[in-house]
């Protein structure tokens, strides 16, 4: 059994090496965010230093980063709510009638390159005078959140016993009452997973806001990209921005880690 023990030791070393490769770059960003201007570019790198908040003070003090973060929050929150408002009833009807084509159709939106929609959207939103508003970003990000909501919720809805719905119908409940009073309470865990994934996808999304946001509606993601483009030489402030925009998705996904991969892969298994 020496061979087996050796094998286990080798596995542990390999796993440790992989984890190190994954952690070090992220840790580097976080450490840099708390270093002073001179320490941040120092080579050999300083691993021990007195952490400072000056980068965060500069980030929020000298730019409108707080406003941009608020925009991100409104857009991600709004598009999540819109995606769920549209997606929950749609997924319920699809599961109940065993329809698959609308779900397949939403996959189309998930596969198409985002650039494809941008020019038509630009024309459409200019025509109705909405360009540069957060409304535009909520609407376009809902194109991302809607398929997520539908595909994450379908398995939860298919698992709801049909008798539960049928008995409510016999008692005279209308479709929306069945959904709100009977079905929704049962699928709360699914709605939580869908909401968190939708929020994270929308929060992280770069391309639509890059083109469609205005000075007022710019998201924190686009603002951070602009810092890079302006050749900001203060890496500390840059890394502070990275930490601020990375925190919400990382914290939120901690809550649903076990269901995360299933949620991300939803749609690919059947589609």
């Amino acid at each position: 059994m020496v061979g087996r023990r050796l094998g286990r030791a080798a596995d542990a070393v390999a796993l440790g090496a992989v984890l190190l490769v994954l952690v070090v770059p992220v840790a580097w960003v976080v450490l840099s965010a708390f270093k002073t201007r001179t320490e941040v570019a120092a080579l050999p790198p300083r691993l021990f230093f007195t952490p400072t908040l000056e980068n965060f003070v500069e980030l929020f003090g000298r730019s409108d980063f707080l406003d941009y973060s608020w925009n991100s929050f409104v857009v991600a929150g709004g598009s999540t709510v819109l995606g769920l408002l549209l997606g929950v009833p749609a997924a319920f009807a699809m599961a109940w009638h065993r329809m698959t084509w609308p779900a397949t159709a939403t996959l189309f939106a998930r596969m198409a390159p985002g650039t494809l929609f941008l020019l038509p959207w630009l024309v459409m939103f200019t025509a109705v005078g909405l360009t540069g508003t957060r409304t535009v970003l909520v609407l376009t990000h809902a194109v991302i959140t809607l398929p997520v909501a539908i595909w994450v919720l379908l398995p939860y809805l298919e698992a709801v016993p049909r008798e539960l719905v049928e008995s409510a119908q016999i008692d005279g409940a209308r479709a929306h009452q069945v959904l709100l009073r009977v079905v929704l309470p049962v699928i709360v865990p699914g709605v939580v997973v869908a909401a968190i994934l939708a929020f994270v996808f929308s929060w992280n999304y770069f391309l639509f806001a890059l083109v469609l946001s205005g000075v007022e509606s710019k998201t924190a993601i686009v603002a951070s990209f602009n810092f890079v483009g302006e050749g900001v030489t203060n890496w500390g402030a840059l890394m502070a921005a990275a930490v601020v925009i990375a925190a919400p998705p990382l914290i939120l996904t901690l809550l649903i880690q076990r269901r995360l991969v299933g949620g991300l892969a939803a749609g690919a298994v059947k589609g």
């Binding site: 960003v29 992280n204 993601i221 990275a242 925009i245």
Partner: peptide
């Protein structure tokens, strides 16, 4: 894979 692509780019 949960980090925003912008953060990956900055990193």
């Amino acid at each position: 894979f949960m980090l925003p692509p912008v953060v990956i780019g900055m990193m």
